[in-house]
Simulated scan of single mutants.
Amino acid sequence: MRRDQPPRPLAVGDVVAVPSEALGSWTASQVTSIDAAAKCAAVLELDWSGPEPATVADLGDVQPLRLSHHRWGGKLSHCNHGWVLPKSFRVIGSLPPLVTEPSYSYSSEWGRGEQLARQRHWDSGDREDWNAPHALTCTADELDVENTRGVVQAGVKHLTVRGITRLDCTRLVAAFPDLTRLSLSGNLGTLTSAAALNQLPWLQGLTISDLFGMDASDCLLPSHVPEVEEVSLYGIPADYAAAMRKTWRPHVRHGVELDVRGARKPEWVAANAVNPLRDWDGREHIPRAGYRKALAQYKATGDAFLAEITGGEHHGNIAEIGRAFGAAINALDSRSSFIETVEREELFDALDFLADEAQTAAGRDLTAARAALIEGVDSIRDW
């Protein structure tokens, strides 16, 4: 497998077709450019759906899909994706690229007709939001309520569960036996019996984020889930991550997008249980030294804030603590410019966490003190 070419054969102009659950038929798109350095492909969705096509000729007079629903304003459905052509897609021929301008949009998942379904829903005159058929998004608590009823939800194909503290995968599989896509996320939550996910024979995509409790024996196995074409893991146990990488890396050439990052050892999990900036550890564009210094400044700010609360809560002093924090982060960011929109929000979330911890320790309302801290940060920050 050459590193300067997509793992599955793919060229500019190729037209690819895929069955669409959203449309109940097949749909198609065209590769308009390939960036070997970035390992991505620009893909233009086509305004077409129908029975499985054998060749490009079966599509008729194809046109690019233009989106006018909601606030798209007639823009092309043209997006950059990872250059691994998912195994459910197949090349049916080639045409001169229907557009030559670059795309500035990015998405990890190749489109499977969802945008075309939304556009047709809009064109019908229905202005209610279109929801993907067979999809369910819920919290772990909501899922637990359904599980206690013992209801098998065979109609659900796409399941997203957020806010997981603890989840038994055996019960999940029993309740949702026909899943094709599964996304699970928590906040250092625990998955138990993760090997049970091998009992989902139609599974195509698996995403797990910030969950632990799995080990190498819980590895998803290609022989059990042969339809899988996307494995995305972040913030997971190190031995589970290693097993998944080893098992699925040989399948990338067959159309499996594999993304495994943020492998953590048990010691890291224990040390970071109350660290709101832990996701910065290992994030691609954040220097390791920058993360360590930001965390040290955050901890120092927390200590100073709690000491001031204990000593009498002078808002002028608290604002100065905030200014010191803002200035320190300014200095860190000036060296490597790693604080973007997400990191800025995470820093303010961390300050909220800090204030919540202090409020719990003090046993009284600290709304005014929290506001003084934030005002101090805002008065000086340039991130």
Rank of each mutant, 00 (worst) to 15 (best):
R2P: 06
Q5N: 00
A22C: 07
S33E: 15
A37L: 15
K39F: 15
D47F: 04
P51C: 05
T55G: 00
V56M: 06
G60K: 03
D61W: 03
V62R: 10
G74Y: 12
S77T: 00
P86D: 15
P86L: 15
V91N: 04
I92L: 11
I92S: 01
L95F: 02
Q115C: 07
R118N: 02
D126N: 15
D126T: 07
R127W: 02
T137V: 02
T139C: 11
V145I: 08
H158G: 00
R166D: 08
L172C: 03
A175D: 07
N187V: 12
S193C: 08
L197Q: 10
W202S: 10
S209P: 00
D210H: 11
G213N: 09
L220C: 02
L220S: 04
L221H: 09
E229R: 13
I236A: 08
A243W: 11
W248R: 12
P250D: 02
P250F: 02
E257K: 14
D259L: 15
R264E: 11
W268G: 02
A270E: 15
A270Y: 01
V274S: 12
N275S: 13
Y291L: 06
G302I: 12
F305D: 10
H315P: 00
G316K: 11
G322V: 11
R323D: 05
L332W: 04
T341N: 12
D349L: 13
D352S: 13
Q359C: 00
T360E: 14
G363S: 03
T367W: 13
I374A: 11
D378P: 00
I380D: 07
